[in-house]
């Protein structure tokens, strides 16, 4: 079964990210390490497991700047065979719905039986890629899968919810986003890392995908860091004094009681 995976490159979770004052919505990239979106690793692992069962192939699709190639190579080192990368600024800077249309157009060239994505992108916290792509392709979607079982032309997906879980049956093809806990992403072997270098990354333009323009209906206008938290108030004294001072502070200064 051929599986396609939507991939995204994001700043490393350990990176100290700062807004770029010159470009609204962008970060300063100097010194920042970029990685494959961690949730996408679950998607790649699941895709490989499903494809390995019957000799299918896993292909990635990605919208992002040239540096995204490194994230794709990581997925290739895990075992993904091929990828389509769209680097045109009009696509990279587009909103999620527009990007979903572009991804759907790229996916159509592959006609996969299953489309997987990470549950969310850890940088923008966008979590709608699978849903938008499904909508554009006219196929069902399930978000945040913690278990996927393929059964012929159907998939049974489990999604964890507060205090329990949902079991959802969907026809295939479908788009499913992958939650942490779905699997344990494999470590690339060193030989696979070497092989990944020579795998095909096909760069496609919007024109080649039959998309004339990619007008965004929304755009990010600013990126701000959270304000530094003010220092707390330290209250000392005997238990009686502390209780008194605490009550006085809560009612007087904080005005919460």
């Amino acid at each position: 079964m051929n599986v396609a995976v939507i991939l995204q490159q994001v700043p490393d979770t350990e990176a100290a990210v700062k807004p770029n004052p010159a470009v609204p919505g962008a970060i300063l990239e100097e010194g920042v390490k970029f990685i494959l979106n961690p949730y996408d690793e679950f998607a790649v692992e699941e895709a490989l497991k499903i494809a390995e069962k019957d000799g299918g192939e896993v292909t990635g699709v990605c919208i992002g700047p040239d540096r995204s190639e490194n994230a794709i190579r990581m997925a290739m080192a895990m075992g993904m065979e091929r990828a389509i990368l769209i680097t045109e600024p009009a696509a990279v800077e587009a909103d999620l719905v527009t990007q979903g249309g572009i991804l759907a157009a790229a996916l159509k060239t592959l006609s996969p039986k299953l489309v997987l994505s990470g549950r969310e992108m850890i940088d923008s916290q966008n979590d709608a890629a699978a849903a938008v792509v499904a909508h554009k392709l006219g196929i069902p979607h399930v978000l945040a899968a913690s278990k996927i079982e393929i059964n012929g032309d159907k998939a049974v997906v489990v999604r964890d919810i507060e205090g329990g879980s949902l079991e959802i049956e969907t026809a295939l093809p479908a788009a499913i986003s992958c939650q942490k806990g779905l699997n344990e992403p494999r470590y690339p072997t060193l030989i696979a890392i070497k092989r990944a270098k020579n795998k095909e990354i096909k760069k496609m333009t919007l024109a080649e995908l039959g998309i004339a323009a990619a007008p965004s209906k929304s755009r990010v206008t600013a990126l701000r860091q959270p304000q530094a938290r003010a220092a707390g108030v330290k209250i000392t004294g005997t238990p009686e004094e502390v209780t008194g001072k605490c009550l006085a502070w809560l009612s007087g200064t904080a005005k919460v009681i």
Binding site: N70, R73, M74, A77, Y187, L190, I193, K194, A196
Partner: peptide, 14 residues
């Protein structure tokens, strides 16, 4: 190089 980076990242993760 990119290959070395992936090998080192793998070692760090391991």
């Amino acid at each position: 190089n990119e290959e070395q980076k992936m090998v080192i990242d793998g070692a760090r993760r391991f």
